[in-house]
């Protein structure tokens, strides 16, 4: 699955996109898996209330299942307009 990072999440993790093999069932499990990898992930994901997630380009939530999902994106609350 492709994982995308935007804004300060991208800066903290240090890359805009990566492909991961995961058996995580939910977004929360994926976050735990990534956070266990390296400090930069743990730091970026330390406060989930400051983050938003999109699954296949639709806003979702951290308890959503990852079944069949091809693209996960993590980013801070949006500031458009």
């Amino acid at each position: 699955m492709d994982i995308l990072y935007f804004a300060w999440v991208r800066e903290r993790i240090g890359l805009p996109k990566e492909r991961v093999e995961t058996s995580a069932a939910t977004v929360r499990e994926l976050v735990a898996e990534l956070s266990a990898r390296e400090d930069r992930y743990a730091v970026a994901f330390s406060d989930l209330s400051a983050l938003r997630v999109a699954l296949d380009q639709d806003l979702s939530d951290f308890d959503a299942p990852l079944d069949g999902v091809r693209e996960v994106a993590f980013f801070p609350p949006m500031t458009g307009g």
């Binding site: 300060w8 980013f75 609350p77 458009g80 307009g81």
Partner: peptide, 26 residues
């Protein structure tokens, strides 16, 4: 306007004279 502000995936960063950058917080 209300929805574009917080539901369209844009993120603003202010670039300052001294080279620093600040992400605008929602």
């Amino acid at each position: 306007m209300d929805y574009l502000k917080s539901r369209a995936p844009f993120w603003k960063k202010e670039l300052l004279q001294d080279g620093a950058g600040n992400w605008v917080e929602a």
